[in-house]
């Protein structure tokens, strides 16, 4: 079937200054139950790859540098 791309906002933001993924950290990626966080190897920071968030917060809570902020997904806000 023909298809198209649509853009979604995602609820998680990562403070690139604070993130230490480049030092080997992947805590947020490890703990996310829905596996929606990824590491951008080129930039050395974490980011949200899929709009499939339960806004449950382990990623934010366990991040050693407080780099993550979870917002409520737009549809629920």
């Amino acid at each position: 079937m023909p298809s198209t791309k649509i853009t979604n906002t995602v609820p998680v933001t990562v403070n690139a200054e604070a993130c230490i993924a480049d030092k080997g950290c992947s805590v947020c990626v490890d703990v996310c139950p829905l596996d929606v966080l990824l590491i951008d190897q080129a930039k050395g920071t974490a980011y949200m790859g899929y709009d499939e968030c339960w806004y449950c917060l382990p990623c934010e809570k366990d991040c050693p540098t407080n780099a993550i902020t979870v917002h409520i997904p737009y549809l629920l806000r």
């Binding site: 139950p33 829905l34 499939e52 968030c53 339960w54 449950c56 997904p73 549809l75 629920l76």
Partner: peptide
């Protein structure tokens, strides 16, 4: 009712 697939009561995993 929000229509958000992952906005469930249960853990959606």
């Amino acid at each position: 009712s929000s229509g958000y697939l992952f906005g469930t009561y249960e853990n959606p995993t």
